[in-house]
């Protein structure tokens, strides 16, 4: 038996919004540690990994590890039936083929129960090593979203150059070129507005904006985004979900042929 309860449906709604454009089907792995999901997009260029820790839930019961195979589109549609302030309970039997989603209004006057058919999915899992990155940038998530969106008007890819004290995001295309320089904040009153740039060694890598724009669908989950970059390895774009977990995206770099 698996059953968990979150005080606000909003966070799970936003999490589904952050995933559904990138992946069509996925498996939620349920264990005593919480819920987790890992899935590559169909082109095997990017990967998303979600962790929602037990401690962040109101209640969490998992008698036996289970895998819940879901159609993301369906799950997102059902999640949309919840109001942001509703509390939400997810429930499934150990060998069941249904996931129950129960939404309760804050005053307790309305309870909605939806049952979603689960899928038997065989999804390849990748082993992602823990590693040190050459550079880590933290910046307001809305700012990163804006940069990706704006540069998409110029080209298909963005070149990210990190040096001490700042980052350059640049794009080239048929209509012209663009370069956006973001400087590390000197002092910031509000942590969410801060830009920090940690550099062990400067890096310069190129990534497809199409995928970065998919990743920025997670912007409503967190005021800050972190970009971890090392030469010739995938970029990690991470959004922390306060008190609950994270959504991390991995994107393989582009190379000049």
């Amino acid at each position: 038996m698996f059953e968990c309860r979150l005080p606000k449906a909003e966070v799970l709604k936003k999490t589904m919004d952050a995933l559904k454009d990138l992946i069509k089907e996925a498996v939620w792995d349920v264990s005593a540690q919480g819920l987790s999901l890992q899935s590559m997009d169909s082109s095997h260029v990017s990967l998303v990994q979600v962790t929602l820790r037990t401690e962040g839930f109101d209640t969490f019961r998992c008698d036996k590890n289970i895998a819940l195979g879901v159609n993301m589109d369906t799950m997102q549609k059902l999640m949309k039936c919840a109001s942001n302030d509703d509390n939400i309970t997810l429930k499934s039997e150990d060998n069941g083929d249904l996931l129950s989603l129960i939404f309760e209004s804050p005053n307790g006057e309305k309870t909605s129960e939806y049952e979603m058919k689960l899928m038997d999915l065989d999804i390849e899992q990748l082993g992602i090593p823990d590693q040190e990155y050459s550079c880590t940038i933290k910046m307001p998530s809305g700012e990163f979203q804006r940069i990706c969106r704006d540069l998409s008007n110029i080209g298909e890819s963005v070149n990210i150059t990190v040096v001490k004290g700042g980052v350059d995001f640049s794009a080239k295309g048929d209509i012209g070129n663009a370069k956006i320089h973001v400087t590390e904040s000197s002092n910031v009153d509000n942590e969410k507005d801060a830009v920090t740039v940690e550099v062990n060694e400067p890096v310069n890598l190129t990534f497809a904006l199409r995928y970065l724009n998919f990743f920025t669908k997670a912007t409503p989950l967190s005021g800050q985004v972190s970009l971890s970059i090392s030469p010739d390895v995938p970029l990690v774009v991470a959004y922390e979900i306060e008190d609950l977990g994270h959504v991390k995206y991995f994107l393989a770099p582009k190379i000049e042929n």
């Binding site: 590559m40 082109s43 095997h44 260029v45 990017s46 990967l47 390849e124 899992q125 990748l126 082993g127 992602i128 090593p129 890819s157 190129t206 497809a208 390895v233 995938p234 991995f250 393989a252 770099p253 582009k254 190379i255 000049e256 042929n257």
Partner: peptide, 14 residues
């Protein structure tokens, strides 16, 4: 010409 690498090149399946 830029080529987008696949993630499988970096991470092993398990």
């Amino acid at each position: 010409i830029w080529k987008q690498l696949e993630l499988n090149r970096f991470y092993s399946g398990h």
